[in-house]
Amino acid sequence: MTATTPRLHEPWQGQRRQRYAATVGMWLFLGSEALLFGGMLVAFLLCRSLQPEGFATAAAETDIAIGTANTLLLLTSSAAVAVGAEAARQGLRRWALPALGATLALGLAFLVLKGFEWRSDILGRLWPGPGFRLHAPGSEMFFAFYWALTGLHAAHMVGGLGAISWFTVEVLLGRRSLRSAAFEAMALYWHLIDIVWVFLFPLLYLDGRSGA
C-alpha cells in the first residue's frame, strides 16, 4: 500500500486548512518551548551579571572545537531539514528522503560529539559538587547551567530525531503520505532546537575567550 494523499483528520474538511492548523499548532507549541529555554537563559544571564569573572573563567574551560563543530553540524542539519520538509510538501520523494536522512545523520553526529564532550568534562572534574576543579566564584554555577541547558537541549534533539525517523519510516512503508503536514511541523521543531543552540554557543563557548 502506498499513501499518496495525506489522511484527513477531524474536524478538517480540506488538506489546506489541516496543514495550516498543524503549522499554527506547532508554532504555539514552540512558544511554550521558548518560555522554557528563554526562562533558563534569563536566569543564566542574571547569574552571570552577578558573577561575570567566574562565568567567563568557566566558559573558557568548555571545548571550543567541539562546540564550534556542533554549531556547524546543527546549522547544516537545519538546512537539510528545510530542504526535506519543502521537498516533501511538493511531493519530491527523491529529494525529500535523502535530505531527511542527512538531517538524521547530522543530528546523530551532533549527539555523538556531545557525548565525547560530556565525557571529557566529567573526566576534567567539571561536574558541580565535591571535587569540582575550578575555584573562581560563580564557575560552579556556570557549569550547573551548562549541564542543565545542554542536557535539556540534547533531550529535545533525541525527541526530534525520533520523530524524523518515525515519519520517514512510515513513508518508506507506505503508511504515511510524503505530503503529510507532519514533516513541516517537525521541521519547525528542529529549527527551534537549532535556534536554541545558536544562543547557547556564544553564552557557553565563546564567553571569556578574549581574556578581556
Binding site: T23, W27, L30, G31, F37, G38, V42
Partner: peptide, 15 residues
C-alpha cells in the same frame, strides 16, 4: 498571519 503572530510572541521570550 497566525504563524507570524505566534512566532513574535514566542521570540519575545528570548532575552
Amino acid at each position: 498571519q497566525l504563524p507570524r503572530l505566534a512566532a513574535v510572541a514566542a521570540l519575545l521570550f528570548i532575552p
